[in-house]
């Protein structure tokens, strides 16, 4: 008897809840996905397609469906990625390498086997970061190099190469705050 009461009660209550939820989902149905509009509003609307989607709205839809990451918009850069991560409540991720245009710190180095000691690069260097004398092998003072690459074109033997430097513990700096002003339109 007792077991019958339990079964009936549970069945009745489950049915009531099921009907209630079913009714609510019809009654309170929300048209479309409002989140796509919100994501679309955050994107720069350049329709550049660098995210591999045919425009900003398709990219927004791809983000919503989980197909695309939030880090594929080069024109928006880090600011857009952070805004998206705030909106969607997901962790900020580094900009995708393929789509990134954030400048990376680079320095140059001289392949000393090839260097002929012509001093042309020394004259080109604006910060005196190249050490050497005529007919002597040159070398680059890495700490002084700004990565301007001005020494590369004058080199007659193409012995100067670019390499990227990862920030170390003592060279890492806070990134500069993004400017809130927009450039005047030409």
């Amino acid at each position: 008897m007792s077991i019958l009461v339990a079964i009936i009660t549970l069945t009745v209550i489950s049915t009531i809840f099921g009907v209630l939820l079913g009714y609510t989902s019809v009654k309170f149905h929300v048209e479309g996905d409002p989140i796509v509009d919100k994501i679309d509003a955050l994107l720069p609307q350049t329709q550049c397609g660098q995210c591999t989607y045919p425009g900003c709205r398709p990219y927004a839809e791809a983000i919503t469906s989980g197909e695309a990451g939030i880090n594929q918009c080069p024109p928006g850069g880090e600011a857009t990625m952070l805004a998206l991560s705030d909106l969607l409540g997901i962790e900020p991720v580094a900009l995708d390498e393929e789509h990134a245009d954030e400048p990376q710190k680079t320095v140059v180095y001289i392949d000393e086997q090839i260097c002929i000691g012509c001093t042309l690069c020394i004259q080109a260097c604006p910060v005196d970061a190249i050490l050497g004398a005529a007919k002597q092998m040159h070398t680059i003072i890495e700490n002084e190099c700004t990565g301007c690459d001005l020494c590369i074109p004058p080199c007659p033997v193409d012995c100067i190469h670019i390499k990227t430097v990862k920030p170390e513990q003592d060279t890492w700096r806070w990134s500069l705050p993004a400017s809130t002003e927009t450039a005047p339109k030409a």
């Binding site: 209630l20 939820l21 609510t24 989902s25 309170f28 149905h29 929300v30």
Partner: peptide
């Protein structure tokens, strides 16, 4: 679930 749907709308 009920609250979520009502709030959503």
């Amino acid at each position: 679930q009920f609250t979520e749907m009502v709030v959503h709308k």
